[in-house]
C-alpha cells in the first residue's frame, strides 16, 4: 500500500485531555507532518469543522453534551468528505451498528499502536 505523505488535517474530539494527548502522540509518531486540532465536545466539533474543514476526524462517544455518534452524524451529513473513526471503550453491538450506518468504523479504546494502525488504515483506504 503506497503511503500518502501529503499534509493532512485531523480533528480529535474527546472530552478527556489524556485521551486527546494519547491519540495525538500516537498519530504524530506515524504521521509527523499532520496538522492536528482538538475539540472537547460534540458541539465544539460541529462549530469547528465549518471554519476549518479537516480531512479526518476521531470521535469519542461518551462526552458531556451530545453523544459523539450524534455529533458525527451531523458533521457527516454536512461534510461527507471527512473520514471519521469512532473511538470508544463501549464496543457493544448497538454502537458497532450505529458506527457502520454512519459510514464510520468503531475502534475499541484504549488507544494503542494497534488501534491507531486500524485508524490510519481506514483513513487511507475508505472512500
Amino acid at each position: 500500500m503506497p503511503v500518502d505523505n501529503s499534509i493532512k488535517k485531523l480533528l480529535i474530539v474527546d472530552d478527556s485531555k489524556v485521551s486527546r494527548m494519547l491519540i495525538r502522540t500516537h498519530i504524530l509518531a506515524q504521521r509527523p507532518e499532520w496538522i492536528i486540532s482538538e475539540a472537547v465536545c460534540g458541539e465544539e466539533a460541529i462549530a469547528l469543522v465549518d471554519n476549518d474543514l479537516p480531512d479526518y476526524c476521531t470521535m469519542d462517544i461518551n462526552m458531556p453534551g451530545i453523544q459523539g455518534t450524534d455529533a458525527a452524524e451531523q458533521i457527516l451529513s454536512k461534510h461527507p468528505s471527512i473520514k471519521t473513526v469512532i473511538f470508544s471503550a463501549n464496543i457493544q453491538e448497538t454502537h458497532q451498528t450505529r458506527a457502520r450506518s454512519l459510514g464510520t468504523i468503531l475502534v475499541a479504546k484504549p488507544v494503542t499502536e494497534k488501534s491507531i494502525a486500524l485508524t490510519l488504515d481506514f483513513f487511507a483506504t475508505s472512500q
Partner: peptide, 17 residues
C-alpha cells in the same frame, strides 16, 4: 484525575460489554 477517569471509563466499557 483525567488519566484515571479515562482508565475507568475503559474499564466500565469492558464491564458493560
Amino acid at each position: 484525575i483525567d488519566a484515571l477517569a479515562e482508565v475507568f471509563s475503559i474499564g466500565a466499557g469492558r464491564a458493560a460489554l
